[in-house]
Amino acid sequence: MGIDRRKFIKASGLAALGLAGLAPVKLFGTEDSTQAVSDSVSSRKEIGKPLEGKRWAMVIDINKCLREENCTACVTACHTAHNIPHFDNSKDEIKWIWKETFHNAFPEQEHEHLKDHLLEKQLPLLCNHCDNPPCVKVCPTEATWKRERDGIVMMDWHRCIGCRYCMAACPYGSRSFNWRDPRPFIDRINPDFPTRTRGVVEKCTLCEERLRIGQLPACVEACKAHAMVFGDLEDPDSEVRALLRENFTIRRKPSLGTHPEIYYIV
């Protein structure tokens, strides 16, 4: 863990340098740079100005997403960037972003005469980074918390005691537990991101480590259909706000009052 941590701290330090304007390389600094290089592992070396927002959110256009049949670019990009292991036994599975049928993603919205393309195909699901996250409320050690400055629901893998109460409380199945040591099951370790130990819970952190060096979340960057748009909900001129203004969007299980910040254009 020590080496991973040191590298992590080093990356944060470099990000701070970028903030001070000492690192002039700024390739992916803006939100509309979705066409940028998709090899997330190598792109970590480019240090840009941190992306700053008061309330990060994501809008996913289901129709655009479904046009790319059987595409898993977002899942691969995320799981490569974050050292997600692959287990043969699905019960041990760890996933930060994954694809699921409309029926499973929106059980309350489903009906039998739903458009065929929605019934059959799958769309991406990830942590909703809720405004009112039930997982944070139940954590007995504050190992997971909502970051005040931008609303990201964070995880501290060094503090988590592995009680899995947050997994029981999450209405979206967004959290995974390291039932066993993940390291031998990682295809190719990304040295820029920590690996986890067994016995802790993990989940999507909206690529806060990439935002710090001016990069968009790995899934957004990797999406071939440009179906995923990331931005600041508090900024009225942001692309996410424009999309929310112009389209009818839905969120998962809104009746629970969790206020998910991942929106779906149907």
Binding site: D92, E93, G162, M167, A168, G173
Partner: peptide
């Protein structure tokens, strides 16, 4: 070895 030697899973966490 970890809690994987139990029957618990990503879906049934307790």
């Amino acid at each position: 070895e970890g809690l994987y030697i139990t029957g618990m899973s990503r879906d049934v966490t307790w």
